[in-house]
């Protein structure tokens, strides 16, 4: 993340990391999560799900576990959980 000024406590604050879970077959391909992810970690995948939509897939690292995709998704198809220490280290 780019700061215009580095916060004084930036070394002490631990930034949470999230893991995105996508339930592909529930997706109807509206693309809201992809467009409005604040960290832009999602993109359309090339594959089709069982209903013929392109579900999102994780494009890049950087999920902060803000749960916005989870709230915005009309289909209960995407959510995030906090990364375990093991996952965060990867």
């Amino acid at each position: 993340m780019k700061y215009w000024r580095v916060p004084l406590d930036s070394e002490e604050v631990e930034v949470t990391q999230g893991v995105v879970h996508i339930i592909k077959d529930r997706c109807k391909g509206c693309g809201y999560c992809i467009e409005y992810c604040p960290r832009a970690v999602l993109e359309f995948s090339k594959e089709f799900n069982k209903n013929g939509y392109h579900p999102p897939r994780v494009r890049a690292e950087g999920c902060l576990n803000c749960h916005y995709c989870e709230l915005l998704c009309p289909e209960f198809a995407i959510f995030s959980t906090e990364a375990t220490a093991e996952q965060a280290a990867v």
């Binding site: 879970h21 339930i23 939509y53 709230l71 009309p74 289909e75 209960f76 959510f79």
Partner: peptide, 30 residues
Amino acid sequence: PVPHPLEDLVRMERIPHIWCSGCGTGSVFT
């Protein structure tokens, strides 16, 4: 597979719901 956090509140056997792709009703419901 980790369950969606709202699965205890939704009748999952009726999902996918009838709302069209891009309909906002699902978001308001969530």
